[in-house]
Nucleic acid binder design. Structure first.
Length: 495
RNA sequence: GCUCUGGUAGUAUAGUCCGGUCAAGUAUACUGGCCUCUCGAGCCGCAAGGCGGAGACAGUCAGUGACACGGGUUCGAAUCCCGUCCAGAGCACCA
């Protein structure tokens, strides 16, 4: 039968149950990127895991842009929409969206309340002076001032009477806490830089722990999934929650994700783009979603990969081998196969006894997709071969032209017909090489994962497909082809 | 240096909370068998078809390969305890 064999259903990886899930009527998760650049494989983890859990529990998903630092890691105006598009492409569904730079009044309101509760104070100490005190578990003089004085200082921060760097709001914690990084952490500071969305409307901005902590409570987040670099932030925020009398959400901190030989650092990516090392965010050497998409990885591959890594707190170093294997399995049955000759060289065959036609199937498992026919005859004996294969072939050695006949090399660029039987090729230990009649191929450059490119010739029928499209080029690998201006360009996905 | 986490095959992950069913499961990688498909000398057959040779992707079956080290508790430890080593995260008026 032509019907595909009954494949065993891909066993869906089951994520471990969320802690204390039954405590909540509805599970609510969030993904909170900083729109200072696009998202990459590492960032995707929080998004995909949260999405998966939301679906698993019939819960709700909040997308929250955390853009409260106008001067350090400044938000990029275009990043918001690119992130939305990347998430959509990944199949992440969100029910609510929020942008923190729209919520400053909410943070101001909670800052004032926290001061009134005696849970926070305005500190005018120099950063170094404060650090010196706090490492000795000593309070700074500002800490003991009464709330009325604190509110007065807060007002001066907002009105501009205190200059940038002159004061900061701190949340009171246990000064005896063994980890000095947790003691009386900063929650609000003055930042007068212009914000790409709202300009200079505000001069006082919340720090991460304040904005994120307030929002998680206000939005009713039940479970937070984030990297373990946020582990101490949880401990910091818990002090604030205690002041307000709130319960802290369940938090899961997973380890960092690395991928061998690929840059997954936003700051390095940005620096590389600015210096011209990388062309843009979708440079094939990068681990951004944009780059993976351009190279021809499918969203399902990314999701399976992230799910496979789960939520372990230890660092994981993924190898491309595994990523490629997942993607190959998905792509192989779906994409057409064509002949592509990388770095072609001409080769003339003598002694061809008659006209031959080689049939090359578009997919061996789908004969109904059809086949391509290539002709070689005594009258047109010149073909194109990949130079990489040609270089291996010395005078006197034999090889087989895929689906055609066997050839012996007589001298560089020339050979002669030997036989038609594939068994001969085997007996001679001859490689089977893909080829194309000279003059048939259309030029197609394929950008490799290291950003170098192969110049080559592709079966023009491939370029007649709807673009962009993924193919498997015989003996070359999977390539995603795009229309670019008047021509086409390919990106190598994997072998 | 200080504060936290962790260490299961080359890589990733399950098992660790509640010790035995874990001489450790899964995926990937590698090796071998089978097989679809493709190309196909020859053989059998009136024919349909069958046998047979070769090889790539996928499929399938089998094999290779790991509980960081040392001690302790226990009838029994990957799982509990202690120590050592190693790795990661944090120690910003970043997120």
């Amino acid at each position: 039968m032509g019907a595909p064999k009954e494949k065993p259903k891909q066993v869906e990886r089951i994520l471990p149950a969320l802690p204390n899930a039954s405590k909540f009527k509805v599970i609510k998760v969030r993904f909170a990127p900083n729109p200072d650049s696009v998202i990459h494989l590492g960032n995707t983890r929080a998004a995909l895991l949260s999405d998966e859990y939301a679906k698993m529990y019939g819960g709700s998903f909040v997308l929250r842009f955390e853009d409260t630092s106008p001067s350090i890691k400044p938000p990029q105006a275009e990043a918001y929409e690119i992130i939305r598009q990347d998430l959509k492409w990944l199949g992440v569904h969100w029910d609510e969206e929020a942008i923190q730079s729209d919520r400053l009044p909410i943070y101001y309101d909670h800052a004032r309340r926290l001061i009134e509760l005696g849970g926070a104070y305005i500190c005018t100490c120099k950063a170094e002076a404060f650090r010196a005190l706090v490492t000795q578990k000593k309070p700074c003089p500002c800490r003991e001032l009464p709330p009325s004085e604190q509110l007065e200082r807060w007002g001066r921060m907002l009105s501009g009477k205190i200059r940038r760097g002159g004061a900061v709001m701190r949340v009171k914690t246990d000064l005896e806490h063994p980890n000095p990084a947790i003691r009386d952490w900063p929650a609000m500071r003055i930042d007068t830089a212009s914000h790409p969305r709202i300009g200079k409307k505000y001069r006082v901005w919340p720090l991460y722990n304040f904005a994120s902590g307030i929002d998680d409570h206000l939005m009713g987040i039940t479970h937070i999934l984030r990297g373990k670099e946020h582990e101490v932030n949880m401990h910091r925020q818990k002090y604030m929650y205690r002041h307000f009398g709130w319960d802290y959400p369940e938090a899961i901190h997973y380890g960092r994700l690395k991928i061998v030989g690929t840059v997954l650092s936003k700051s390095k990516i940005r620096a590389g783009i600015e210096s011209g090392l990388y062309t843009d965010w979708s440079d094939p050497r990068l681990g951004t979603i944009a780059a993976l998409r351009r190279r021809g990885f499918v969203p399902e591959t990314i999701r399976r990969l992230i799910l496979e890594c789960g939520v372990r707190p230890s660092e994981a170093t993924i190898s491309w081998e595994n990523v490629d294997a997942i993607n190959r399995k998905i792509l192989d049955p779906l994409v057409k196969r064509y002949v592509y000759i990388a770095d072609p060289v001409a080769f003339e065959i003598g002694g061809i006894p008659k006209a031959f036609t080689a049939k090359v199937a578009l997919h061996p498992d789908h004969p109904e997709w059809g086949a391509r026919e290539f002709a070689v005859s005594p009258e047109s004996p010149i073909i194109s071969l990949p130079s990489g294969d040609m270089a291996q072939l010395k005078k006197g050695s034999a090889f087989r032209l895929m689906n055609l006949f066997n050839v012996e090399v007589t001298r560089a660029g020339r050979g002669r017909f030997v036989s038609e039987d594939v068994a001969d090729a085997k007996r001679l230990g001859a490689h089977i090489i893909q080829w194309m009649p000279q003059g048939l191929g259309a030029p197609l450059n394929v950008v490799r994962p290291d950003a170098t490119a192969h110049q080559g010739l592709v079966d023009p029928a491939a370029l007649g497909e709807a673009m962009p499209s993924s193919f498997q080029f015989y003996r070359y690998g999977f390539v995603r082809v795009y229309r670019e201006g008047e021509g086409f360009v390919g990106y190598f996905t994997h072998g």
